[in-house]
Design a protein around this nucleic acid. Structure first.
Lengths: 253, 253
DNA sequence: AACTAGATTTCCGGAATACGGAATGGCTTT
DNA sequence: AAAGCCATTCCGTATTCCGGAAATCTAGTT
């Protein structure tokens, strides 16, 4: 479960630190990491030496300036969230429904809501930045799932066997594969489930080498789904996703 | 010179990768890192496993999605460059001279230009994002240097013994210490050197725990320096730097 | 001020892993 | 089709890592 070997563990701890609080204690980190305190301590010494973490007031640690510098360098090259924002705003203006950007994390095999522009409608979903999206359900998840490498799809399907909202068993492997194939052909994932009053359309976003980065989607109560000219919506969503993919490709060339 | 031990080397390579090209080859990285190819290869396997790097087309490597995710998380919490931008713009509007944000990298003991808003004047310096600032010279460097821990100041002074532009030896250790003390008292660093036609005023920017993050400064040809009401300029620069420090502190609490 | 509870830091022997030169294997190019 | 280049694997050695336990340190309390 927990990584073994100094290098593996350093990478593991870095992720925990980046996603953790701005100040943390040794013991607390050891607990989150599920590692012996002395081992975490030794690795923190390494990170201190390289500036990736620093000491704070009292006896606390914090992400270091070198880590922030490293992050800035990467984000300066291309910031998916920032680039997506105007596209999301356009979608909301056009359809008056909530538009979101999801980013996919291959290591955790999870999709996370990264950016979001809300609909003006008072009835909307309580999605929030940082919220997790289940890959096998909903348009957002499936827009990503459909474009994962085959082996990864298998793994995701094994891990998530029941739905997060409905709790009911998912469709069979075969049905699902057919649905994903359809998504690959059309270039967007549609979802419509009156039972839980949710609907949406999402398009995949790719990186410079056509690896999947996430998706752009528009979600709404299923009641409002029919009101839209569905093909217009699908066209616009696919267009936005493709534009974003192009921007990612250009910035990495 | 090059780090030894798997964890140290992983941190070292991560920095090289983040600051390197968006696609790279094993051999190339090994060369930049000054490490044996087989050692770099082994460490890249570790990073692949954790998603920090990924394979690209052909046989190339690239920064992985996990690394971008990690970077986004950190930057989302607080983005110094983004927060500084409006402050820089205000300074330029007010004084019509180039305003810049420098960030300090403690590991390399260097300051780098991170954000910049140019003066409308046609005569201006060819400073660019990513350009290095020598710490012992100029207002930008000294605004940072003055607020480093004593041991670090010593180290910087030992490393840089001659100026980058003038090439002349720096003032004595004693003189320099007096100048830095004055900067600490006043809260801004002033620089005025007609010999190389450069002048500027800079203020230090601190993090949540008063560690120095960098500085905000306004630079100009020395000819134009007298035209400004110097105290107004110093006051405005110090104000901007303090505002930015407050923003950093708030976002990390 | 002295004490206590909690945390961090150091220590150390045993074991696992990192190390890197050299050989192999696989792309890409001429 | 062949050659050159680069990535990958192999393997014996030696170094580093590992983690429980002891020693220190810090902060809070009596």
């Amino acid at each position: 479960m927990v990584p073994k070997g100094a290098a593996d563990r350093l990478a593991y701890l870095l992720k925990l630190i980046a996603s953790g609080p701005p100040r943390f204690a040794l013991g607390e980190l050891a607990l989150r990491a599920d590692l012996p305190v002395s081992s975490v301590h030794r690795l923190l010494q390494v990170m201190l030496r390289s500036g990736l973490v620093e000491r704070g007031a009292g006896q606390s640690y914090r992400p270091g300036r070198e880590l922030h510098r490293l992050a800035s360098q990467l984000v300066a090259r291309f910031d998916l969230g920032r680039s997506a924002r105007p596209l999301l705003q356009d979608l909301v203006e056009q359809f008056h429904e909530t538009a979101v950007l999801c980013v996919y994390s291959p290591a955790q095999r999870r999709a996370i809501i990264s950016e979001m522009v809300h609909t003006p409608h008072p009835l909307r979903f309580a999605v929030e930045r940082g919220g997790e999206i289940s890959l096998p359900w909903g348009s957002l998840g499936r827009a990503v799932l459909a474009f994962l490498p085959p082996g990864e799809i298998e793994a995701v399907m094994r891990e998530n066997s029941t739905g997060p909202l409905t709790g009911r068993a998912r469709s069979t492997r075969k049905e699902m594969e057919a649905e994903l194939a359809a998504i690959r052909v059309e270039g967007v994932a549609r979802y419509y489930d009156p039972a839980i009053d949710i609907a949406g359309v999402s398009g995949p976003v790719f990186g410079a080498e056509r690896e999947i980065l996430g998706c752009i989607g528009v979600t709404m109560p299923s009641k409002r789904y029919q009101l839209h000219l569905e093909d217009d919506l699908a066209l616009a969503v696919r267009g936005a996703a493709r534009r974003l993919s192009e921007m990612a490709a250009i910035s990495h060339s």
